[in-house]
Design a protein around this nucleic acid. Structure first.
Lengths: 341, 341
DNA sequence: AGTTGTTTCTGAATCGATCCAGAAAGTGGC
DNA sequence: GCCACTTTCTGGATCGATTCAGAAACAACT
């Protein structure tokens, strides 16, 4: 009944706990023949291996990085952008013999508890929104942590791009081509249609607005259609925009996934991209290139690697690091001058 | 420099460690006024809260269930089936104040290590394949664990449906309708085109075969096309099948997601479902109903709940529980008699 | 005054490993 | 035969909390 520990094995063989521990963790510290006997005895006694909890407590290092996700798991994984980011993060983590822990929460209330109780060496928060209770909990844990992409908050470690400036550049590109009737397709907010809650979406909308104001285009005349963050969501959302009279000549989607759905919706109407409607995305996922989508490219895997290095580098003394990664406007075939109307 | 612990606070206030511990974990065990002072001092000293590792070691319970995923994260999350399952699991876990830990591995070799070192109360392995090294590691940890859906192995705790029998029923349905030229769309295996590695896919193929043999249809004449597990993968895979001469009159996809892609491919050829080609799926995800897809319905969330209860119920003594859940053939509009050729 | 009970707090033991300083035995060089 | 060095093993301290039996103070009831 009593569980099998190092002590059980040590007593069975008449050696010390330390020696048994070495047999598992530092094989070069003992005689190979004795080690063989120890492992054999461990196997016979049903020893499950050194207890990870005790080991972590003593070593003061868990060998784990926590990745915080919001409730909608599908949000994070349906988007190839997230997968790329995680690949970069996992790469750096693996070099430090560290594994990733994806933390799924039933809801916001549980988030705080989860952050407080997770056994990790650091956190990376992904897809949070401004004001999420976990953010304060993160600060209190006094472990290294980084907010990725959104929200950007003063005094909080951050890695991402300047979403607002990038969005402005993208919108300015459309305005330069001559577009004046714009439609925006944004990810759905948590709060319902009133307010755009997600930091990145909000920053991107602000960037579009900046560009409009600079070009003296009336921002209030721009229709903002919210939708689910998926290809299908882009299709149905775009359908709404295409029903408007007069129809927008350009659709700005806040992510590539949505933009790809929008392109599909345009085709289903028997219209052409960019002949009748121009479409832009955001992120430059692999499928964007194939579809000839004009978008903002951001370094996805590199972002993950940067986050990993930051977290594994130890606690940040003093100032919180805030790293802005480079981005690039990729103009492809999905944008052109608007049709003569 | 030295970290702030219970002891630091206790000494600062001249009370015992136990009392400070109670202030955090058992508020009813001490004077409210003293508790207030303790929490205040903790805040001032920058105490990050009781160390989760130490707490776990002492309590002997982590309050965490590990969910094992294979390398392809997208595999698990692109499929609404997985999301539903996790919802059920999370529900039961939440009732026991337990959170879920999604474990992402860089690769198979890392799997063993991760299982050995994870600080959890139990494991649920999802989307593993037969012979995965993690399976042996799971057994050795002597913690409760369950294999979900695939692979089904003797002596290993299991929850799922009888994939083979379900697949047989589905295929028999097509054969009853009169189909004789079948095409199969299966998820890609790890090993390449030679052998179908994933347990469920293999079991489903075996079921199709059973039905064919019972109806004296030549199984060797059935083309098996492998593809990526996604809607897009289904589209391209089905395109290959539709290029065959003579064209199959029915396509059996091993998952709904693939089937939905197949339906799209048929439409793109200017053909009709089920007029020219019948299509079947597997799992009955929400989108399957909308698309009128004939498929096998299995209880997704209930499966998650069952797994959760099993894991939280403690270690299984003696025999490994193997639970087969009910399934149901859902005949919808995507299947009909083959065209007169 | 004595018994019982409640509230509030304490000290030592414990969870299961790892780390460190050092002991014991054996090796090699001079 | 002595010193220096390596290999192999040991015992005790430690990581940071929780648990448990019990002490101290005080109230309530015979």
């Amino acid at each position: 009944m009593a569980s099998v520990t190092l002590k059980t094995i040590a007593e069975a063989l008449g050696v010390s706990r330390t020696t048994v521990s070495n047999a598992f963790s530092r094989p070069d510290q003992l005689n190979p023949e004795l080690r063989r006997r120890i492992l054999e005895a461990a196997d016979e006694l049903g020893y499950p291996g050194p207890d990870p909890t005790a080991r972590t407590l003593r070593r003061g290092k868990a060998g784990v990085l926590g990745v915080l996700l919001t409730e909608e798991l599908s949000y994070a994984f349906a988007d190839p952008y997230a997968v790329e980011f995680l690949r970069g993060l996992a790469e750096v983590a693996a070099e430090a013999s560290t594994s990733l822990l994806l933390m799924a929460w039933p809801g916001d209330e549980a988030a705080e508890v989860a952050v407080r109780e997770a056994i990790v060496d650091g956190f990376c928060a992904f897809c949070l929104y401004d004001g999420h209770p976990a953010i304060e909990a993160l600060r209190q844990r006094r472990l290294p942590y980084v907010i990725v992409g959104e929200p950007y908050l003063p005094g909080v470690p951050f890695v991402g791009i300047d979403d607002r400036a990038a969005a402005k550049a993208l919108c300015a590109h459309l305005l330069r081509l001559g577009h004046r009737r714009l439609g925006v397709l944004s990810t759905r907010t948590k709060e319902g249609p009133g307010d755009v809650h997600f930091g990145a979406a909000r920053a991107r909308l602000a960037g579009y607005r900046d560009a409009c104001e600079e070009a003296a285009v009336d921002w209030d005349g721009v229709v903002i259609q919210q939708t689910v963050h998926s290809r299908e969501g882009g299709r149905t959302g775009a359908a709404r925009l295409l029903d408007l009279h007069p129809r927008p000549t350009a659709i700005l989607a806040t992510t590539d996934l949505i933009a790809l759905g929008a392109i599909q919706a345009v085709a289903e109407r028997g219209l052409e991209v960019p002949g009748h409607v121009s479409v832009t995305g955001f992120d430059d996922i692999p499928a964007a290139g194939e579809a000839g989508l004009t978008t903002i490219r951001q370094p996805k895997a590199a972002k993950g690697r940067t986050v990993g290095r930051l977290l594994l580098g130890g606690t940040h003394q003093g100032e919180a690091p805030q790293i802005l990664m480079p981005y690039e406007l990729i103009a492809r075939a999905s944008t052109a001058a608007p049709p003569d109307s």
